[in-house]
Design a protein around this nucleic acid. Structure first.
Lengths: 193, 193, 193, 193
DNA sequence: GATGAATGAGAGTTCATTCAT
DNA sequence: CATGAATGAACTCTCATTCAT
C-alpha cells in the first residue's frame, strides 16, 4: 500500500530536483554561455552538491539539451505554427514569428545561449520547423526544399539580431525590432513572388 | 645606410616568428574557436615553446586581436568600399559585399571564429564600416544613423549565414549564397525606398 | 539526535584533511618561506592532489593565514597576557614574554616564516597585543599610545633575534636568549622610569 | 698604439654598464625585494637586453652581492668606526651608529632589501663589524666574544626597526627613531656595567 | 538519493638563463 | 659587446567527473 505510493513520491521529488537543477543551469548558462558554465556552479546555484547533479544528468551537455527541451515546449505553447495565416497580412505573420521569439528569449534567460550551444540542435530544429510551417501556410506553393532553406535563413537572421534586441531597451530595442521585421518582410515578399 | 638595415635583421626573425605564431593561432582558433584554443597548442603548432609565444604576445587575447588585424588588412585589400557603386546595378553591389566576405573567410580559416570572438571588436567594426560606406555610396540620401543600423543588420545577416556557406560546398553552397544575396537585395531595395 | 551527528562525519574527513594540509603547509613554508612555497609541493607533502588543496583553501595566501590562526591560538593558550604581573619581578615578566615565544616558534616550524609573511598581519597583531597587555599590567601608568609603540618595538626585537635562537642550540642558544632578555629588561626598565 | 688604449676604453665602458645595471637592480630590488625581482625587469630598467646583463653578472644573486658591495663602500665612507668615541657621551655614540644607517638606507633605495637578502651576507657582516668596532672603542674592556654577540644583537635591532622608520615620516618617524635609540642606549648601558 | 571530498590533467603565464646572430 | 629570440620547467589555479560514505 505504502509501496505503491513511495515510488511516485520519489519520482515527484526527483522531478522537482531536476527542475531545480535546470533552473540553476538556466541561470548559469545565461550568465556566461554554455562552455563557460561550470557544473559546480550549477550545483551550488541549485543548492545541492555536485554529486547530486550527476545523479540526474550524466554530464554538462545533457543539462543543456534538457534545458533546450524546456524551451522547445515553451515555443510550442507560445507559437502555434498551424494557425491560419493565409488570410492575414504579411506583417501580422511576421509579428507572429518575431514577437514570440523575443518574448520567449526574454522570459527564459538562457534561451539565446542554448540556441547557440552546440548540444542544442533540437532547439534550433524546433524553431526552424515552426518557421517552416508558418511559411508553408502562407506560401503553400513554395517548393518544400526551398522552403526549408528559406526557413533556415529566416531563423539565422532572427538569431543574429535577437541578442542585440534583448540587450537593448527603449527606442534602440524598438528600432532594432522594426529593422528585423523589415528584413523579414522584404525577404518573404521576394520569396513569395 | 647600412646601419639602418642591420637592426632589422633581428626584428626580421622575430617578425617571422610572429607570423608563424599567428599562422598557428589561426589554425587552432579555426579548429575550436577562441576560448577553446590553448596557448600551449598554438605554441606547439608553431613548433616553439610556450615561452616564445609570450615573447611576442602578452596573452591569448592579443593573439586574437593581432589575427583580427590581419583580417582587417585583408578586408581592406579585397573590398574597396569607396569604389563607385552609384551607377552599378544593386546585384553587383551586393556581389561586391558578399563575395569578398566569402573569399576572405574561405582563405583565412579563423575569420569566422575571430569575427565572433569577444576581443575582436575591431574586425566587426571594420566589416561594418565597409558595408556602411558601400551603402552610403549606393543610397546617399539615407540618414547616417539609420544607415549605421542597416549596416549593422546587414553584417549580422552575413555573419549568420556565412558559417553555413563555408561549411557547405557545391550546390548547397551556391544555393545558400544565392539565398543570402536575395535577402540582402530585398532588404536594401526596401531601405532605398 | 543522530541527525546532528551525521553531517559532522563528512566535515570530519574534511577537517582532518584541512589539518593535514596545514601540517604540510607548515613544513613547506618552514623550509623556504611563504613565497618560495609551492601549492603543488604542499599538496604533495600532504599526499593529496592539487585540486584537493583548493577544495579547502581558495589560494596560497589563505593557507598562510589559516596557519597563522593556528599560531594565534597556540599563543593564546601558552601566554596568558592578563596574568598578574604587577607583583612579580621584571625578569619573570620577561621570561613570560620570551620563553613562550621561543617555545611556540620551536614547536611550530613555520612560526617564524608566518610571522614575516605579508598575509599574516593577524599573527603580528596578536603577538603585539599580548606584549602590549603584558606591559600594561606591569607599567599601568604608561600612556597607551607610547605603550603600543613600545610593544611594537619589543615585538620587532624578539622577531629579529628569534630566528638565530631557533637556529642555534646548546650554549649559543642560551647565550642569545640571555642577550635578548637583557635587551628587553634594559629597555623596559628605561621605559618604566 | 691604438691597441693599448682600446682595452681601457672597453673596461671603462664595461664599468659604466655595470653601474647602469646596478642602478637598475637597485630600483627593481627596492620595489619588491630580491626574490620578487626579475632579471628581465632589471635589464629593461637599465635599457639593455637580458643577454647584456648576463655578460656582466653570472646570475641574479651576483647582482645582489655587487649591489651590497656598493653599500659596504658607502657605509665605510659614512661611518668611520675608528673615530674617537671613548670621550664622547653614549648618546652621541648611538647617534653615530643609527643616523648613518638611516641616512644610507634612505639614500640607497635597496639597502634594506639587500640587508635582508640571503646572498648579501657581507653587507650584514660589514654593518656588524662597524658596530663591533664602535663598541670596542667605547667599551674596550668587553670580551671580544661577548662584544661580537652584542654587536650582532644591536645590528638585528636596528635592522628590525629600520624599515618602519624608513616607511614612516614626520612625527612617527621621529618617534620611532627616538625609541630605537632608547633601546640601544639602555642596552649598551647595561652591557657597559 | 545525497553529500562533499577527491582527482589529475591541463589551463595561461612567468622567468632565469642560453645562444645564434 | 650587444641583441632579443628561445627555452621549458614550474607556477597558481580550475573543473568535469567519480566515489566512499
Amino acid at each position: 500500500m505504502v509501496g505503491t505510493v513511495k515510488p511516485r513520491r520519489r519520482q515527484a521529488r526527483g522531478e522537482r530536483r531536476m527542475a531545480q537543477l535546470l533552473d540553476a543551469a538556466e541561470e548559469v548558462f545565461a550568465a556566461g554561455g554554455f562552455s563557460a558554465a561550470t557544473t559546480n556552479a550549477i550545483a551550488a546555484t541549485a543548492g545541492v552538491s555536485p554529486g547530486t547533479l550527476y545523479q540526474f544528468f550524466p554530464n554538462k551537455e545533457s543539462m543543456a539539451t534538457a534545458l533546450a527541451d524546456r524551451y522547445v515546449a515553451a515555443l510550442a505553447a507560445a507559437h502555434d505554427p498551424d494557425a491560419r495565416v493565409d488570410g492575414v497580412p504579411l506583417d501580422d505573420v511576421i509579428d507572429r514569428m518575431v514577437d514570440p521569439a523575443i518574448g520567449i528569449a526574454g522570459d527564459h534567460r538562457a534561451f539565446e545561449a542554448m540556441f547557440r550551444a552546440h548540444p542544442c540542435r533540437q532547439l534550433r530544429a524546433a524553431v526552424t520547423d515552426n518557421v517552416d510551417r508558418t511559411i508553408a501556410a502562407r506560401v503553400p506553393e513554395l517548393d518544400p526544399g526551398r522552403r526549408r532553406l528559406v526557413a533556415t535563413v529566416v531563423v539565422k537572421i532572427i538569431g543574429a539580431v535577437l541578442p542585440d534586441i534583448l540587450a537593448a531597451s527603449g527606442r534602440a530595442e524598438a528600432e532594432l525590432t522594426a529593422e528585423l521585421k523589415r528584413v523579414l518582410r522584404a525577404y518573404l515578399l521576394d520569396v513569395s513572388d
